[in-house]
């Protein structure tokens, strides 16, 4: 089963081509992680799949329909997008921010109804934010804040959630907290999750499907076991990696690596 399908996608900023003639299928109901070096076009690809950017040519299909033929609001009912390190305005409480997730479903001036309240309560519960729901977002820790944004995406009630480096600037334990939350949500709600991750081992640990990108081209794709090979890491990151299977997770992990010198 496919969720998002990108066909012959080329994306450019002004004259600079970032992604060139890329084909990609995102499996439905699975967690897909996109990895690659800085500036390889992974965020750009994610934004294009989320209809924030318009491709120069090619299409992104969602359930067989081009997302650029849908309105922004129609897309927002199917897909939630969390950009890198979003900023909340001062003075907004956790609950208020999460309630914005209901925006694409609301009509008129946007008053919350009981169904909206139910969904917001559910999102609060799923992200374990009930205790602090009336606190202001500015006063929270980095990990809590990221959970609030994820809760907002949950309140949007979409089949697909796209996240651009949801663990940036977070401590190790917070990184795990966020990724485990997403993992649990994927398993319980069967939603499709696509995220760009910087940390290779975390990307491997939580993924069902992985995509490695370099220079706007896909180097490799497949299950973590298929992707995490010496060749792929050499081609993607230019490293000489030592890979072993972790006993606890059963997934491959990059234990150590060296730069490959020409």
């Amino acid at each position: 089963m496919k969720s998002i399908v990108a066909e012959k996608l080329s994306i450019s900023y002004e004259d600079k081509i970032i992604v060139d003639n890329l084909n990609l299928e995102i499996p439905k109901g699975k967690i897909t992680t996109i990895v690659g070096p800085n500036g390889c076009g992974k965020s750009t690809l994610l934004k294009t799949m989320g209809r924030i950017l318009k491709p120069r040519c090619g299409v992104v299909n969602l359930d067989g329909k081009s997302i650029h033929s849908l309105t922004t609001r129609e897309v927002a009912k199917k897909m939630a997008i969390l950009p890198q390190t979003p900023q909340a305005p001062n003075g907004l409480t956790v609950r208020e921010l999460i309630s914005y997730g209901r925006f694409p479903h609301q009509k008129g001036i946007g008053k919350l109804n009981d169904e909206d309240r139910n969904i917001i309560s559910w999102a609060l519960e799923a992200t374990k934010l009930e205790e602090i729901q009336n606190q202001e977002v500015d006063n929270l820790s980095g990990g809590q804040r990221q959970r609030v944004w994820i809760a907002m995406a949950l309140a949007q009630q979409t089949e697909i959630i796209l996240l651009d480096e949801p663990t940036t600037y977070l401590d190790l334990s917070y990184q795990l907290e966020v990724l485990e939350l997403l993992y649990d949500l994927n398993r319980s709600e069967k939603c499709t999750i696509v995220m760009v991750l910087h940390d290779l081992n975390l990307a491997t640990r939580f993924a069902d499907y992985m995509v490695a990108i370099k220079g706007g081209k896909i180097i490799s794709r497949g299950t973590p076991n298929e992707l995490m090979t010496w060749e792929v890491l050499k081609d993607t990151f230019n490293i000489d990696a030592e890979i072993s299977i972790n006993d606890k997770t059963g997934k491959p992990a990059c234990v150590s690596y060296n730069l490959i010198k020409n």
Binding site: R51, T72, P86, A88
Partner: peptide, 19 residues
């Protein structure tokens, strides 16, 4: 309400269905 959402930034607003 659109103003409220726009205040969250361009990308978030896009994601929430605002042109």
């Amino acid at each position: 309400k659109v103003l409220d959402v726009l205040n969250l930034g361009d990308e978030i607003s896009h994601g929430l269905g605002i042109d």
